[in-house]
Design a binder for these strands. Structure first.
Length: 839
RNA sequence: GCCGGGAUGGCGAAAUCGGUAGACGCACGAGACUUAAAAUCUUGUGGGGGAAACCCCAUGCGGGUUCGAGUCCCGCUCCCGGCACCA
């Protein structure tokens, strides 16, 4: 072995120029050659599944928001790996869906051609960013080997009675002749052509996610997720406790039926109308009823005189799109049906109206209107001259005090018979029980969560694996016949039939019934993209298995996901659906857990120069340009430095240079470091403080402050005329490795050049430095001295100083003495921090 | 309207079991090196007063609790994100 040349000699020979581009290319190809990022999933110790939300591979390429998410995720993964975990950081592409399809239509290229092209571009960009991604287990939702199992999941739900078909309203653009998602309806018009949107009823497949509402809500209490995400899910699930109250049920009864049974038509005009309310305590103030215009009872209730008006109103509502119907600011409209119903509390007859502010899909599709204590009802009652009665009064308020607006606050019941005087809470309970005893009410819990409509009358998605047979009805495609492959359609544009373009390919949809062998017809709708993404994390570890969706052993070993990072824009839909599907598979005995993600954190949004990035503003950051100019290491580190990861940050070009300077200083300092002599004690103290801070902050996503701490340490290292000792620098290279992985590897290699044994070791597998609290401890501490709360002096005392020492030193200080006359009234001591003197 | 999150120097931001406000970085000023520029290095930088030592003011606005408040409480304003006639 030759005499090891020190880095210093080397630095003297050739100038240590930091060439980011060549270093990054070198390490990216090494990682690929050495399989660095493909962990041994069967045997690797201490598995750690670090997951990021997979991207939709758009034609524009990687968005800065994606890269921000991925970098933060990658740093966490690398950090865990250095701490000794076997880290699995997979990637895939969410490439089905309307988004891709619309884009393909726009540019006139088939998605089958377009998507692989986009994915290739994404691969290039993601590699250039230096992500520790396991490319050997990449997946795409559009791959038949993947969506075979998406279809299989549909079958599992179908088997369990959780998939069903029913008619449902959709937005329909009569000009584009297609179904629109709610997001595609802008102010009641089609976002593309501006034509007013109508409602249509189509048969659609639904998943019974509402069966899981209670559980989806309950588990939120214990899963370790961002609070903002949990709150969003809670609101979305929208649990409401209340009662279903029946209006119009005859007290004496006719000997048949429990509460809620609609009376036969012959009983006109008193059919029973069940309503849902969260305020059963206000039933004495219910002065009229309102039904959704499409409520089935409207037909029976409407009197001959009102028929024309009611029909006209219903028709008008039906023409309206689903979005603008739900606009709050809109003026209230409605029509009287001519019928009245009995208020079960007062026994009075109240008029029954229909109005579009009542929605058929929530509760019973009918409400008891309490204009005195509900803002919407108040508005309606005012518009149509309906009676307004006060049944709740705030403490000290007169029961007869007039209501200028709906009073929705608490207080005591008034004008409510024997219940007057009760609090709102007691009244709720008591009145519900009272009505229940008479068969006119039931306590009830309602959710605003609706069943998940998974049907899409589109082309670019996995065909729903169902066959319709005249003899057998709906027949699921047998498992062994999966996948039902999406056929190549030259023309995949949606048309005016309102059914999927797949319905044009007769050779595809004409099949034999798997049950009876007779003539059958495939379902021509495809499933929602959100179904593709509701289970992809289960597939990653088992992506090489063709025979099962997910391997048992691998799943037990790697799932649930240890840490999931993604945007809060998916707080409700994707994250809720993923939880739901996991629960269903758990209930089917296919998964040993019911929550898919142990830990979820939402990253923040990244804006630019104080404004949201958008193509129209022309302030979109193209990662390629920045990586080319500054290098991936600088770009990554800068992205993480601009603000707290969970809050996002403001991207400004001017800030990048500071990060680049920091890395260059590190580069020079490391290569100039000497192995001779001893490290400096004060520097080592700072080093151990830095290790502690970077470790804590990195683990808690405090990337910006972790970077600041490393910069601070770099300033310490470079203070004065000295050359750093390699023991002072090596741990810093390890700390910076998750942030600037290429440079760290290069430095690590150069610093160990000529040394045997460790030469082959990569910084990624070199471990994570451990802070030594003894070495980190300060010898001297600074104590602030306040007099009457104002800072008057700073004392430097030995670390072991007692309260008495500190007080003595404080009072002895000249500056302090100026403000302390006589004996202090009180002295407060905060150990190691301050002395507060009150005079 | 409801639910989250936020407001701190010229700018991005630190600091929240209440305890030295502005770490780190950008930008800017001064200096060193250079024929010069760039790069690099040193140094200064919240506002006001003062020759200085120091003093006063300052974390969106108005109150409060406290020896002490960016942090806690009450009442507002504005910004961002989400949901939105859910009874």
């Amino acid at each position: 072995m030759t005499t090891p040349s020190t880095s210093r000699d080397r630095a003297a020979d050739e100038p240590a120029v930091y060439d980011a581009s060549s270093i990054e290319q070198k390490w990216q190809s090494r990682w690929q050659e050495e399989g660095t990022n493909s962990p041994d999933l069967e045997h690797g110790e201490s598995p750690y599944y670090q997951l990021m939300m997979f991207p939709y591979p758009s034609a524009e390429g990687l968005h800065i928001g994606n890269l921000y998410a991925f970098t933060g995720n990658d740093i966490q993964g690398r950090f865990r790996r250095q701490q000794g975990h076997t880290v699995f950081e997979p990637i895939g592409f969410d490439a089905f869906g309307i988004h891709s399809e619309n884009f393909a239509l726009k540019v006139g290229v088939h998605p089958l051609e377009l998507i692989p092209r986009n994915i290739a571009n994404f691969r290039r960009q993601l590699s250039a960013a230096g992500l520790m991604v396991d490319w050997s287990r990449e997946l795409s939702t559009t791959d038949p080997a993947y969506y075979k199992w998406t279809q299989w999941i549909f079958l599992k739900l179908y088997e369990r009675g959780l998939a069903y078909k029913k008619g449902a309203a959709v937005n329909w653009c009569p000009s584009c002749k297609t179904v629109l998602a709610n997001e595609q309806v802008i102010a009641g018009a089609c976002e593309r052509c501006g034509t007013p949107v109508e409602q249509r009823f189509l048969d659609q497949w639904f998943f019974r996610i509402t069966d899981y509402a209670e559980r989806l809500l309950k588990n939120l209490d214990w899963i370790d997720w961002s609070d903002s995400t949990k709150t969003a899910q809670r609101n979305w699930i929208g649990r409401s406790e209340g009662a279903e109250i029946v209006f119009g049920k005859r007290e004496t009864g006719n000997g048949k039926g429990e509460s809620g049974d609609p009376f036969p038509v012959s009983h006109l005009p008193f059919p029973a109308v069940p309503v849902f309310t969260t305020r059963p305590d206000t039933v004495f103030g219910a002065t009229y009823l309102v039904l959704a215009p499409e409520h089935p009872l409207v037909e029976q209730l409407t009197t001959a005189e009102q028929r024309a008006e009611v029909d006209a109103y219903r028709e008008r509502t039906a023409r309206q799109d689903l979005v603008s119907r739900k606009i709050t600011e809109k003026e209230k409209t409605g029509v009287f049906t001519g019928a009245t119903a009995t208020n079960p509390a007062t026994g009075e007859q109240v008029p029954v109206w229909i109005a579009d502010y009542v929605l058929m899909e929530y509760g019973t599709g009918a409400i008891m209107a309490v204009p005195g204590h509900d803002a919407r009802d108040f508005e309606f009652a005012t518009a149509f001259g309906l009676p307004i009665v006060r049944v709740v009064a705030a403490d000290g308020e007169s029961p007869e005090a007039p209501l200028g607006e709906a009073y929705t606050g608490g207080g005591r019941l008034v004008n409510s018979g024997e219940f007057s005087g009760m609090t709102v809470a007691d009244g709720k309970r008591a009145i519900t029980e009272w009505l229940a005893r008479r068969g006119a009410a039931d306590a009830r819990i309602n959710f605003r969560l609706h069943d998940w409509c998974i049907s899409r009358q589109r082309y670019w998605g996995p065909p729903i694996p169902v066959i319709y047979c005249d003899a057998c009805g709906t027949v699921p495609v047998p498992e062994q016949d999966l996948p039902v492959e999406l056929p190549y359609l030259e023309n995949f544009k949606p048309d005016d039939t309102g059914v999927s373009p797949l319905a044009r390919d007769e050779s595809w949809y004409r099949v034999l019934c798997p049950r009876c062998g007779g003539l059958g017809r495939r379902e021509t709708d495809v499933s929602d993209t959100f179904l593709d993404s509701a289970w992809y994390f289960l597939r990653y570890p088992s992506v090489r298995r063709g025979d099962v969706p997910f391997d048992d052993t691998l799943t037990r070993r790697w799932l649930p996901v240890d840490w999931y990072i993604g945007g809060n824009e998916h707080a409700v839909l994707h994250l809720l659906y993923a939880r739901f599907i996991t629960m269903v598979l758990h209930d089917a005995g296919l998964l040993p857990f019911e929550e898919p993600f142990r830990k979820f954190r939402a990253h923040g949004m990244i804006i630019r120069d104080g404004a949201k990035m958008s193509k129209t503003k022309g302030n979109v950051v193209n990662p390629d340009v920045y990586i080319e100019q500054w290098g991936a290491d600088t770009f990554r580190t800068y992205l993480m430095f601009l603000g707290p990861y969970e809050e996002g940050g403001d991207f400004r070009d001017s800030g990048i240079s500071g990060v680049r300077r920091f890395l260059e200083r590190l580069w020079r300092t490391a290569l100039e470091a000497t192995a001779g002599g001893e490290p400096d004690e004060a520097v080592m103290r700072k080093l151990h403080q830095t290790i502690r801070k970077v470790t804590e902050d990195t683990a808690a996503l405090g990337y910006n402050t972790a970077i600041a701490a490393m910069m601070e340490y770099m300033n310490t290292l470079r203070a004065g005329e000295r050359t750093a000792h390699r023991d002072e620098v090596e741990p810093l290279v390890q700390l910076v490795a998750p942030y600037a992985p290429h440079m760290a590897e290069e430095l690590w290699e150069r610093m160990h050049e000529g040394l045997s044994g460790v030469t082959r070791q990569r910084v990624l597998d070199s471990g994570w430095p451990v802070a030594d609290s003894a070495l980190a401890a300060e010898e001297m501490i600074e104590i602030a001295v306040q007099v009457n709360g104002k800072l008057r002096a700073r004392l430097h005392l030995p670390a072991g100083s007692t309260q008495a020492d500190a007080e003595r030193a404080a009072l002895a200080d000249a500056q302090v003495a100026k403000f302390v006359t006589g004996t202090p009234k009180k002295v407060i001591y905060v150990p190691g921090r301050l002395v507060s003197i009150v005079v």
